[in-house]
Design a protein around this nucleic acid. Structure first.
Length: 418
RNA sequence: GUGGGUAUAGCUCAACCUGGCUAGAGCAUCAGAUUGUGGCUCUGAACGUUGCGGGUUCGAAUCCCGUUACCCACCCCA
């Protein structure tokens, strides 16, 4: 075998495009229904951007980014996520000066330098939205509803929503201290991972799946008991809004997220059929990131959904479109060398009138050309042979009805558009 | 970074355990089934350095060693 695609990078061959198109078109449609506008930012950003936003000691920044000239001042990194880029772009171009509140969305590629597995590639794609410049808890709810609408419209099976609040810089340390105080005397009984998490990120102990550990954390302090009055009120309003919208969700005090920039609301979506990676998307509020990126103090909330995982979930449920997708409306066949030129002229003329037309370029028999036309599911076939050429007409075949009529070349475009 | 699995035609797989004629099948491709007509059917054709390198053997897809690639999982999670 010759050169292969890099590890964890995937080709999307033509047969794979129908599902990707459907997903992307659904994303755009739903986001726009909710008033979000599409934006695109570079795939490559200053490494500093992610260190400052995502957090210096997170795994993602420490070892899971594609970074060039690591350690140097102008080091660049393939974006691992898009929230930081969006905030950067809004601040850089003064979008907040023009309008303090921005609702934006993206569909695009991200990169992580990890060992690939099912649903986790090195180049992966996300659909996400960001509502930047407001702290209304109704917005938190709006983003959740938008995400669910997207998943529902595609038919992603078994979607579950978990929500939680992780507090703000005022109350979060209080909760961290409470957890540490609780776990410190018994940390020796936890699994090896959790013993490491104790120093690194004590919140993640709550996320442990080891049975023994789950039991040990059963009576751990609840985040709600540590939240400040403002965070509590925000959380309450968010949850109420979801309930009022009839949105099925579960409050999960154990839900924590990996990024440093999250404040207050966090949420996560899971779906069935995904293997070990059952999260399909997640998001939350980040009320300090805009200011940290050099903007004014302004709240924001958003989510990202992993599209490869959407594909996996849809395929597992048998809901991925299987029809191959072809565009040709008229296939022009020709018999004999003297008809090749006229056929080409006709194809060119049809295309000029906006009709998707194609022809044979391999010099194949009429039968073979008919097979080609059938394979690309062309509803119409034009036949030009010596007889037709002499009479100044072409045969037009309706492939569905298997009926043929002779028509003048000029009438073709009008007839096949019906 | 760690562990396990897999590697045979374009795709999905068989033959491997128990070494032995030209490594098979289905799908896909191409061509025919009376003159210039698709789908369905039938017939035929083409397609392989059995991932790569070495070893054992009279003989290796098959046994042994090495190597590479990919997959799944762990870690962590966007």
């Amino acid at each position: 075998m010759g050169i292969q695609a890099p590890l964890g990078f995937e080709d999307h061959l033509p047969d794979r495009m129908p599902i990707w198109r459907r997903i992307e078109e659904t994303a755009r449609k739903v986001a726009e229904t909710y008033g979000y506008r599409e934006m695109r930012t570079p795939l490559l950003e200053s490494t500093e951007l992610f260190i400052r936003s995502v957090g210096e000691v997170t795994d993602i920044v420490e070892k899971e980014m594609f970074t060039f000239d690591k350690g140097e001042k102008d080091s660049l990194t393939l974006r691992p996520e898009l929230t930081a880029s969006f905030v950067r772009a809004c601040v850089e171009h003064g979008l907040f000066k023009k309008k303090a509140f921005q609702k934006l969305f993206y569909v695009g590629a991200n990169f992580r330098k990890e060992r690939p597995q099912k649903g986790r590639l090195r180049q992966f794609h996300q659909f996400g939205v960001e509502a930047l410049g407001a702290t209304d808890p109704l917005l938190d709810a709006e983003t959740v509803l938008l995400a669910l609408r997207f998943l529902e419209e595609l038919g992603v099976p078994g979607v579950k929503t978990k929500v939680n609040s992780i507090g703000c810089p005022n109350c979060r340390p209080k909760y961290r201290d409470a957890l540490k105080a609780k776990f410190a005397p018994i940390i020796g009984q936890f699994c090896e991972n959790c013993r490491r998490r104790f120093d690194r990120n004590v919140f993640r102990i709550l996320d442990c799946k080891v049975e023994k550990d789950v039991a040990l954390t059963a009576d751990a302090p609840r985040v709600q008991d540590s939240l400040c009055a403002d965070c509590l009120a925000h959380d309450k309003a968010f949850v109420e809004a979801l309930t009022r919208a009839g949105c099925d969700h579960k409050q999960d005090p154990r839900l924590v997220r990996g990024f440093d920039y999250y404040t207050r609301t966090v949420y996560e979506f899971t779906a069935s059929g995904l293997g070990a990676q059952d999260a399909i998307g997640g998001g939350g509020r980040y009320d300090n990131l805009i200011e940290e990126m050099g903007g004014d103090k302004a709240g924001a909330v958003g989510f990202a959904i992993g599209l490869e995982r959407v594909v996996i979930a849809l395929e597992a449920a048998g809901k991925a479109p299987e029809e191959e997708w072809f565009s040709t409306r008229v296939f022009v066949t020709h018999i004999g060398p003297e008809t090749r030129g006229p056929a080409f002229d006709l194809v060119r003329q049809l295309r000029g009138e906006g009709v998707a037309a194609d022809m044979d370029y391999e010099g194949r028999s009429l039968k073979a050309q008919m097979r080609s036309a059938n394979r690309v599911k062309a509803p119409w076939v034009v036949i030009i042979g010596g007889d037709e050429l002499a009479k100044g007409v072409v045969k037009l075949r309706d492939m569905g009805k298997s009926e043929e009529v002779e028509v003048k070349p000029g009438e073709l475009a009008g007839r096949v558009r019906e």
